[in-house]
Simulated assay, not measured.
Amino acid sequence: MSALLEVEHLQVELPTPNGPLRAVRGIDLEIARGEMLCLVGESGCGKSMTSLALMGLLPRRAKRTAQRLRLDGRDLSALNDRDMAKLRGNRIAMIFQEPMTSLNPSHTIGRQLVEALRQHRSVTRAQARDRAVYLLERTGMTNAAQRLGQYPHQLSGGLRQRVMIAMALMCEPDLIVADEPTTALDVTIQAQILRMLRELQQEFGTAVLFVTHDLGVVARIADRVAVMYAGQLVETAPVGTLFAQPAHPYTRGLLGCIPVRGRQRPGTHLTAIPGVVPSLLGELSGCAFANRCAHASDACARTPPYPELEAGHRVRCVLAAGQPAATVEVP
């Protein structure tokens, strides 16, 4: 598969009274057409900032730099606000974490869906309305035509998220960035949304960058996984490889925190990663995970390499090349 999105050494800095906060520190990733890439990590590791940087929606004072930032060969870093607005919602769309604050409470669902299509396509209002109804039905919403006249507050959280997914698909984008779209939903509705999103992604052939902190979600929907820590990618691998042979100590720690039936006895404590994420203010030297890693040594004071252990599996660790990977059960 050819690369649709190419990102090389993406960085995001935010000014603070104590100096620049380096929220994203040299991200390299590619997403192929029709691929589901899950970006996973703890809260505060830079996942959402990476998403907003790709969409050109960073805070006004944030600074984004990249050696390469291309969507289907087009240089996103060279676009002005007007040109980026033409791509946003058209070639690249976003599903936000909380639909209640993403949808306009003063406009009906139908008006917001129709506007998303007519902004970028030469279609009549009736044609846009027909597509809105079709996509709402494809997301599993009943009485879709009647729902167009409702306002966001009249819908449940699950229905609002279905509206957001339909809105993202209105123009058949090449890439959808989904920033933890199921976090605010209960488990049953979350499972329905994930299954539906995966089916729609495969039907329309859309590439998806799915941001989450839930490895259970990753195991169900991902093609590839990128693990993020302290603003950097520390491991990237196909989903089966990551769960069967995690090579970075942080990845192993995350997987070890997941309860697995038959492995943990009832009432026992779950594994936890000791320590805290280092401050992202200023420069970080060496391995950012060293202060929490049981395998840390003097070598970790140097910038860790990012070797490819096998096709598609890269690990940012000085021990990666020589350290055998532990097998972890898929949750």
Rank of each mutant, 00 (worst) to 15 (best):
S2T: 09
A3L: 00
L5H: 06
V7R: 01
E13F: 03
L14E: 08
L14R: 05
P15T: 08
T16R: 07
L21K: 00
R22D: 03
I31Q: 00
A32C: 05
C38E: 08
G41S: 11
G41M: 07
G46E: 03
K47G: 04
M49H: 01
S51N: 10
A53E: 03
M55W: 02
L57A: 08
P59S: 03
K63R: 13
D72A: 15
A78D: 15
L79W: 08
D81K: 01
L87D: 07
I92R: 07
T101I: 11
H107L: 14
I109G: 09
G110N: 01
L113Q: 07
S122P: 11
M141E: 00
A144T: 04
L148H: 00
Q150A: 12
L155R: 06
Q161W: 13
L169P: 03
L175W: 05
E180L: 02
P181W: 03
R195T: 14
T206A: 05
L209T: 08
L209M: 11
A219M: 08
I221D: 03
A222W: 13
D223N: 10
D223P: 05
M228A: 09
Y229R: 02
G231W: 02
T241W: 02
A244S: 15
Q245A: 14
Q245K: 15
H248V: 09
T251Y: 13
L254M: 04
G256W: 02
C257E: 02
R265M: 14
G275A: 05
V277T: 09
E283P: 00
G286W: 03
C300E: 01
R302Q: 15
A321I: 15
Q323C: 14
A325D: 12
A326R: 09
A326Y: 02
T327G: 12
V330E: 15
P331D: 02
